[in-house]
Each structure stands twice: as structure tokens, then as C-alpha cells.
Computed example of a mutant assay.
Amino acid sequence: MQLLFPNLDQDDFGPHFGLLSRQKIEIMLRRRMILPEEFIEESQLQPASLDLRLGPRAYRVRASFLPGKDRTVMEQLRAIARDEEAIDIENGAVLERGCVYVIPLLEHLHLPGSISALANPKSSTGRLDIFTRLITDRSDVFDRVARAYEGPLYAEVSPRSFSVRVRKGSKLNQIRFRRLNSQQLERTDFAIDDKDLLQHHRSQPLVDGDLNLREGLVVRVALSAAAHGEVIGYRAQKHADILDVDRVGAYSLHDYWERVFARPDNRLILDPGEFYILASQERLHIPRDLAAEMVAIDPAMGEFRVHYAGFFDPGFGAAPHNRPGARAVLEVRSHEVPFVLEDGQIIGRLVYEKMAEPPQVLYGEGEVSNYQGQGLKLSKHFVMA
């Protein structure tokens, strides 16, 4: 039976429920709810999440899979992957574009019954078009960890635009922890409703312009020269060199990206299968007591997918006087047919969730906050010149 740590909630977590801040994640580490195979690095701890690290072996698989309720991931891997498809990445190896890999992570979990978890790719991972999802044993969903879960974690990794070099310890995704009260144990929707968002906006603006709400904050794409200047986006090149995910500021954008220029009609035609980096019209600010996630708008509204890495930490976008100061960068891929985007078109929405308590150090206040105050910006690997 899962150990529930008597008096844990009262003594260690206080009376509040919601997403856990860094200081509470540190408590989880001390209480061995998070079990790393190697010491946690300071850089893994974010204001409201923990970066996860790749282990020393990767398994190339023919197709994505979920283990289902009755199997572990390793049982499924043994059934579909041959021994020669295991790759030693201890000191670095290339994950080929278009292939699918399952990689055991260095972090394991031993969660109490009051804590569940959810994951998403890191911002840099999404901007490199590396499709990454979390898998757990005996699960039929990606990127979700059931409360009271005990066991290992795995990353499904599929580079889409560039072949990439990774190694043991590379960080491609991150995990957040949600503390539940007794009435929330079977709940699946934790989004703040639009009425509460309006109250937040009145006391501290969430965006720099009009607040457009539709089960979250509506986000519109910026395609005019007035927003960014002549360059309004980037499109991934088809035949670029291998890119090392651990090398920051090491690559020229010209070797991997084509600039997308503003047109007189303020439109952009998305080519099927192409990957684009665009940005929002809105400048955002995430208050200290909230976190947010970018989710797709109604799929019926367009033949494209937006966002691979859509988590926004508390404090993201803070400008002087707590004004909204950063645009949302949008990772966009068209589907089966060309699709016309117009300047100001709705392209996604931000769904907000309450923190159990504000982080002691907000995004932008720590040593490394690569995307604070961003406009249109590629991942941290590129020199923007």
C-alpha cells in the first residue's frame, strides 16, 4: 500500500492546494517523493517545475505507444524493440529526425495519494521541434502522472525538424506537481474560470491590451511589420546539420532557419508539414500566484497545430511596475493542406491555474531565465544575428 506520510500535509505543505512551487518541490526531494538516480542539479529547479534528465540508454521504436493499465513501459519495450535498437547515449548520441525513441529518465517518483503530476516539453525543446512526451508505467495517457504513482519515468522523443545530439543528463521536458484536497481527488479540470481571470486582470494586467476571454485568455498571432519589424517569423530548414541540445548560443540561425518576412496583406500561408516559429500580438504577464499553459484553440478553427511547449511560470513576462512585457512564442505546424493565417487571427489560448503558494523566486529573478522579456525569439541555442 502506498505510504501516505502521516502529518505530511500539515507539517510540510501547509493548508493550501494547487500547483507546488519550487520550495515545496525541494521538500518532496528531501522526503524522497522524487527519487533521482543522481544528485539533483540546481539548474533543474524552476519556480513551479522540475526539469527531468535523460538516462544513459535510449530505445528506438517503430511507433509511439502507451503501456496501458496492465503493463510497464519496459514490458512494452521488450515486446516491440530489438536489443540492437538500444542506444548508449552516456557520452552523446544522435537522435535522427523522424524517428521515435523512448528514454528512461534519471528521476523516479514515489508520490503520496494527495499529489499528482503533469509534464510538458521545455520551452527550448518545443522551439527545436523535438516532440517530447512523458510516459509512466500502467498508464493510458501521456504527460500525466496519477496520484500515488510509484515508479520510473520515461520520455518519448521524436525530433521533427533537426537531428539532435543528446546525452545522459540532457533536459528535454519538465514536470509539475499538483496538491489535491479531498474533494479534488478525481477532478481533471483545474483551470481558473474567466470571471476570476477578469478580477486578476483588473488588479494586475494579464495582457497589454484588451482582455479577450474564452475559457482562458485568447492569444492572437502577430504577422504585421508593426509588431516585430520586417521579420515576423522563422521556418525550419529541411536539411540542416545535427544540433547539440546542450550547446547554448553555439549556432547561427542562418544554418537552421529561414526568415519569414511580413507581407503587405499581413498574411502567412502555412505549408503542409513545415514548422514555424511565430509570436503573439499580446504581451503577457503571469502573476506570482498563477501559472499558465498554452492550449490549442478549437481544432475546427484551422488546419494547424500550435504549441509543443506551452508552460508559463509565475513571473513570466514581468516588466517594470508589473506590466505585461513578453510575447508568447508560438510553435506552429500546418497539417494536410496549406492554410492561410491572418494578422490578429486567434491561434491558441492560455489556461491559468492557481499556485498552492507563490514561488519565493519568480521566473526572471533567478540566474537563468532565457526567455524573460522576449519578443519573437528562437531557442537559446541560436545567436540572433
Rank of each mutant, 00 (worst) to 15 (best):
L153R: 01
K171S: 13
K168N: 13
F177A: 07
S163T: 09
R160S: 13
N181D: 15
L172A: 00
G169M: 03
R160N: 07
Q183S: 14
R178A: 05
S161H: 08
S158M: 15
E156N: 06
Y154V: 10
R179P: 02
R176H: 04
L172Y: 04
K168W: 00
K171V: 02
V164D: 04
L153C: 09
R160L: 15
K171R: 15
S158L: 05
Q183T: 15
S158N: 11
N181L: 10
L180A: 05
G169S: 11
S170H: 07
F177K: 04
S158K: 14
R165W: 00
Q174C: 00
L180C: 06
Y154I: 08
Q174A: 09
S161F: 01
F162R: 09
L172I: 06
Q183V: 13
F162E: 05
V164C: 11
R160D: 10
E156V: 06
V164T: 10
A155D: 12
G169R: 03
L153S: 06
E156G: 08
A155F: 09
V164G: 06
Q183H: 12
R165N: 02
Q184Y: 07
V166A: 07
A155L: 08
I175M: 08
F177W: 00
R167K: 14
R176E: 12
N181R: 09
V166D: 10
F162N: 03
L180T: 10
R167T: 11
R178L: 15
K171F: 01
R178M: 09
Q174M: 05
S182E: 15
K171D: 00
N173M: 15
P159R: 10
S163A: 13
V166R: 08
